[in-house]
């Protein structure tokens, strides 16, 4: 018996289970919807180029990073462990000779490539559709998009560890709380990942003509990067700690 082989089996099993789940389809629907929107909007045809960059940047802030990234992250981040809890199958994993931290690690590693893959591929696709402005946007913003995705995945993994029905809670959180809190005045908006994402996008895009909306007081891009890294690290640390000690009694 080999522990590494068991871990690799769990990783492959978790990845394939996520990939072939209905979630993949659910996540791809808004991705396709956005593709059609970008195609129809014709960002590349807007003149002068600064205005095109600004319009595409606005799409990235308000639709891509505020809606599509959280959906992709929760579609896989929450479900990786959350589905095992909701379907009461977690017991079969917890009674295998695999340390608990490895169970969670496998779930995170299975969900990250899917979430990040769909986010980054769709982002690249939209940028390609837009043309040279899009290419410029991709080169500027890809670290911000990746950072936000990873932060959301970490947060939603924590949701799955803590809550018995994490998917619904994560959906409400992503679509209501994040947008609501992220747009509140004062310092309370700093509780939302979305706020740091927008700060990054505005901070990085300002030199290329992206206009910061009136009333939005972001933080410097470097600070936003570090904060996203901190949120990711904090959520993952809390998730591992709780998963190690939490007793799951999800049976009926």
């Amino acid at each position: 018996m080999n522990s590494l082989r068991a871990f690799k089996t769990l990783l492959r099993f978790s990845f394939l289970r996520l990939f072939w789940s209905v979630n993949t389809m659910m996540v791809l629907l808004p991705v396709v919807g956005c593709f059609l929107f970008v195609l129809r909007r014709g960002f590349g045809k807007i003149t002068p180029p600064e205005n095109a960059f600004d319009a595409f940047g606005t799409f990235l802030v308000f639709i891509f990073s505020s809606f599509l990234i959280p959906i992709c992250a929760l579609g896989f981040g929450t479900t990786a462990l959350g589905a095992e809890r909701e379907e009461q199958t977690l017991v079969f994993l917890l009674t295998r000779p695999i340390p608990r931290w490895q169970v969670l690690l496998a779930k995170i590693l299975a969900s990250l490539p899917l979430s990040c893959g769909i986010v980054m591929t769709s982002f690249a696709l939209y940028c390609l559709l837009v043309g040279s402005i899009g290419l410029k946007a991709f080169l500027i913003y890809w670290p911000a998009m990746l950072g936000m995705t990873i932060a959301y995945v970490a947060l939603f993994q924590l949701f799955a560890v803590v809550f018995r029905h994490p998917t619904m809670l994560a959906l409400v959180y992503a679509l209501v709380i994040e947008l609501f809190v992220g747009n509140l005045p004062g310092s309370i908006k700093r509780l939302a990942i979305n706020f740091y994402g927008r700060s990054l996008i505005y901070g990085l895009g300002i030199t290329e003509g992206l206009k910061t909306p009136r009333g939005f007081e972001g933080i410097p891009a470097a600070q936003a990067y570090w904060t996203l890294a901190g949120i990711t690290g904090g959520c993952l640390f809390a998730a591992f700690l709780l998963f190690q000690w939490k007793e799951y009694r999800d049976t009926p």
Binding site: R17, T89, F92, P97
Partner: peptide, 16 residues
């Protein structure tokens, strides 16, 4: 966990 086998009283398995 290598030494025991556990058959839980849950109705659900990996349905797919």
């Amino acid at each position: 966990k290598r030494l025991f086998g556990y058959c839980p009283d849950v109705p659900n398995l990996y349905e797919e």
